[in-house]
């Protein structure tokens, strides 16, 4: 299990990195390597050139703003997870991150790398979709912002052009007083999710959900926002029958076909259970607000 031969470049600037990508159709970006290198060791990926972006100074760091957390491309999972400022404005991040692989992988793997890989079972793409975040893509023709829901197109496929670099991801902070929760079902702790559900919701002063965001990973060829369920739950007190309705409306979102160890039915069952539990937990964490 050794990689096949490739060239290696370690540019110091974004522009340089882009021009290498633009000049070589089989060149790929190397970030943390925690997805790319296993694939290369299996010779499932055989890039011509690796463009190692770790030395690009502009691609490092986290910026926490009042509405948006900017996560630069070389930010490792573990940095995002442990960042105290992030935890203050978006405690969901750390909760989700517990489920991404294991600490030694999180020490190397990057948040943006995970988004670019776009595994539908992965947690970070779901988080971005759940929060309604976006990414910034920079290529030979400039910069553009791509909303999460447009970015993830299908299995391991994003809206990124191959000569574009995703320079940062933008994760919204949680609304004040919002409740949040995430959980997933896996075979082993740290594995990719068979199904995972995240929720952010706000309650009004009468205990009704004034705003509900709900998303899932593992169930389709991209992470999905469960919009119908969100609509059903909004305005309710999130009681058992409301949850039942939301679950019933979400079944169709499971489009992943039967696999040997995970049948379609099982995925739907797991998704339903997670929705009930996660929405309930988020509601418990939400503080009821004065506004109505």
């Amino acid at each position: 299990m050794k990689p096949s031969l490739f060239g290696y470049q370690a540019p110091a600037s974004i522009e340089e990195a882009i021009s290498i990508l633009a000049g070589d159709p089989d060149a790929v970006v190397l970030a943390g390597g925690q997805t790319l290198l296993p694939a290369m060791n299996f010779r499932a990926a055989n890039p011509s050139t690796l463009v190692d972006i770790q030395h690009v100074a502009d691609l490092r760091g986290i910026e926490v703003g009042t509405e948006i957390i900017i996560v630069k491309a070389m930010t490792r999972h573990r940095e995002f997870e442990l960042d105290a400022a992030v935890a203050r404005v978006n405690p969901l991040v750390a909760e989700v991150m517990q489920h991404v692989a294991h600490v030694p992988i999180r020490n190397r793997g990057t948040v943006v790398g995970s988004l670019c890989h776009a595994d539908p079972s992965a947690e970070m793409p779901m988080l971005l979709v759940l929060l309604g975040g976006s990414v910034i893509a920079q290529g030979p023709s400039g910069r553009r912002e791509i909303a999460a829901e447009d970015f993830f197109q299908s299995f391991l496929t994003t809206a990124r052009e191959r000569d574009e670099i995703i320079t940062e991801a933008r994760f919204p902070v949680l609304p004040k007083g919002a409740g949040w929760a995430f959980d997933e079902v896996t075979r082993r702790h740290g594995d990719y999710a068979i199904a995972g559900v995240g929720c952010v919701l706000s309650l009004d002063d009468r205990g009704r959900a004034s705003r509900v965001q709900l998303a899932a990973c593992g169930i389709a060829d991209t992470p999905v926002r469960l919009k119908e369920a969100e609509n059903i739950l909004t305005g309710t007190t999130l009681g058992a029958s409301d949850l039942d309705a939301a679950v019933a409306a979400s079944g169709a979102a499971v489009t992943q076909p039967d696999e040997i160890h995970v049948s379609h039915t099982y995925r739907r069952r797991a998704l339903g259970t997670l929705i009930r539990r996660i929405v309930t937990m988020a509601a418990q964490r939400a503080t009821q607000m004065e506004t109505a």
Partner: peptide
């Protein structure tokens, strides 16, 4: 004994 088997049995 996989989760799938349990799901199937319950179903």
């Amino acid at each position: 004994l996989s989760p799938n088997m349990i799901s199937y049995a319950l179903e």
